[in-house]
Deep mutational scan, measured.
Amino acid sequence: MIVFVRFNSSHGFPVEVDSDTSIFQLKEVVAKRQGVPADQLRVIFAGKELRNDWTVQNCDLDQQSIVHIVQRPWRKGQEMNATGGDDPRNAAGGCEREPQSLTRVDLSSSVLPGDSVGLAVILHTDSRKDSPPAGSPAGRSIYNSFYVYCKGPCQRVQPGKLRVQCSTCRQATLTLTQGPSCWDDVLIPNRMSGECQSPHCPGTSAEFFFKCGAHPTSDKETSVALHLIATNSRNITCITCTDVRSPVLVFQCNSRHVICLDCFHLYCVTRLNDRQFVHDPQLGYSLPCVAGCPNSLIKELHHFRILGEEQYNRYQQYGAEECVLQMGGVLCPRPGCGAGLLPEPDQRKVTCEGGNGLGCGFAFCRECKEAYHEGECSAVFEASGTTTQAYRVDERAAEQARWEAASKETIKKTTKPCPRCHVPVEKNGGCMHMKCPQPQCRLEWCWNCGCEWNRVCMGDHWFDV
Rank of each mutant, 00 (worst) to 15 (best):
A405L: 12
S233D: 14
N81A: 14
R97W: 09
R366H: 07
K416W: 07
G357E: 13
L272N: 00
Q276I: 05
C377N: 02
Q64P: 06
S9V: 02
H68M: 03
C289Q: 00
K412R: 10
V70M: 04
Q400E: 15
Y391K: 05
C449M: 00
G340H: 05
Q326A: 12
N428E: 15
K413D: 15
G94Q: 10
L119G: 15
C166A: 01
H279E: 10
E395M: 11
E98Q: 11
N90H: 12
G319R: 08
V248H: 01
F24H: 10
A398D: 08
R170Y: 06
F463W: 02
A138V: 12
K76P: 15
I259E: 00
S110K: 12
Q57M: 08
R392H: 11
A401M: 02
E49H: 02
R245A: 11
D262Q: 04
S218F: 10
S255C: 07
A397G: 09
N254T: 10
L297T: 08
E310S: 06
Q64K: 14
P99Q: 14
V423I: 13
C449Y: 01
Q64M: 12
E399P: 05
L228M: 14
T242N: 15
R72D: 15
F146P: 00
Q171M: 12
K435I: 12
I69S: 00
F304I: 02
K435E: 06
S296W: 03
V324C: 12
K220Y: 09
I69P: 00
S296Q: 00
H124T: 11
N273H: 03
R442P: 05
D53R: 04
N235T: 04
Y149C: 03
D460A: 15
F13G: 00
Q326E: 13
N90R: 11
H461Q: 02
E370S: 07
G85K: 11
Y143C: 09
V380I: 15
E374N: 06
G118D: 14
G139N: 13
Y391V: 06
F208T: 03
D115W: 04
V248D: 00
K413W: 10
T240K: 08
R305G: 07
T217L: 08
H302P: 06
K48M: 04
R42I: 11
G35S: 08
Q389Y: 15
D280K: 09
P439E: 05
L102K: 12
T217M: 10
F45V: 14
T173S: 08
D262A: 04
D274R: 03
F277N: 01
A82M: 13
N232M: 00
P113N: 09
C449P: 01
R420K: 15
W74V: 14
T414R: 13
S145P: 05
D87I: 12
K427R: 14
Q438W: 06
P335A: 10
K349Y: 02
V17A: 02
L341R: 07
H227E: 15
F4C: 06
R348G: 05
E426I: 10
C365D: 03
G35W: 02
Q165V: 15
G12Y: 05
C241T: 00
I69Y: 00
P132D: 13
G12V: 05
T351Q: 07
P288M: 07
T175A: 14
L249C: 03
